[in-house]
Design a binder for these strands. Structure first.
Length: 209
DNA sequence: TGCCAGGCCCTCTTTAGGGCCTT
């Protein structure tokens, strides 16, 4: 039987042709990290052909060219492989609402289930790091002095930076609130909050239940 | 370069508007 650590999450990031699958945008790259008990155990990165040319803006923004995509496998094939990679583990992304809608949209083109639970590192960071200049991923990486190879807006590089941010937040929450180990359920709760609660109240409430 | 959308959150709010964040 396959070993399944209790505290395993998949941290993922999509590069896409634009902001909205409802407007016809497609994924062009998926990058992800399998994090088991705080250790990176596996990585996944694939380009995928979206069925049409991408804009010059996206080429410039991501560094992914039309030439690179012309040699890539179709999205449906890549997403089927990715579904096998993520199994049924919980998912983490920076601004998870964005990656969630692309995951649902692309998996809908395959016969794979897309009923995953997401936690959003951006929403948690907004509560935890209120003195950060802003809560863009790159800013938070610099703010927390997290590891980076200097690559931004590529799927695996962004997923790895999000992984380090996730680990830093787990540690900071445990240290700040004196709990043994922050887990996915707590982090997901911190990303879904009632309005009009102060951040301090919210964190303490989430920790104490 | 920044628009497209959408969820979240703040405030000059809740019968609303606008900024943030993702590509």
């Amino acid at each position: 039987m396959k070993h399944r650590p209790a505290n395993t999450v998949i941290v993922l990031d999509f590069e896409t042709t634009g902001l909205s699958p409802n407007q016809g945008d497609r994924a062009i790259e998926i990058g992800a990290v399998r994090l088991e008990d705080g250790q990176i155990k596996d990585r996944f990165q694939r380009l995928m052909y979206p069925g049409r040319r991408i804009s010059g803006f996206i080429e410039s923004y991501t560094g992914i060219s039309n030439q690179m995509l012309s040699d890539a496998e179709p999205a449906s094939k890549v997403m089927a492989e990715f579904a096998d990679f993520i199994e049924d583990f919980n998912l983490v992304a920076h601004n998870a609402s964005f990656d969630s809608k692309f995951l649902i949209s692309e998996l809908a083109r395959t016969d794979h289930n897309s009923a995953y639970l997401f936690a959003c590192s951006m929403l948690i960071a907004r509560r935890l790091y209120q003195d950060a200049p802003n809560h863009k991923l790159g800013t938070l990486v610099r703010f927390k002095s997290l590891p980076t190879d200097g690559t931004f807006h590529r799927a695996l590089a962004d997923a790895e930076m999000t992984t380090h941010l996730w680990l830093a937040m787990l540690e900071d929450i445990s240290t700040r609130y004196g709990i043994d180990q922050a887990d996915f359920a707590l982090m997901q709760k911190l990303g879904k909050t009632a309005k009009h609660s102060s951040h301090q109240f919210l964190l303490k409430h989430a920790v104490t239940g």
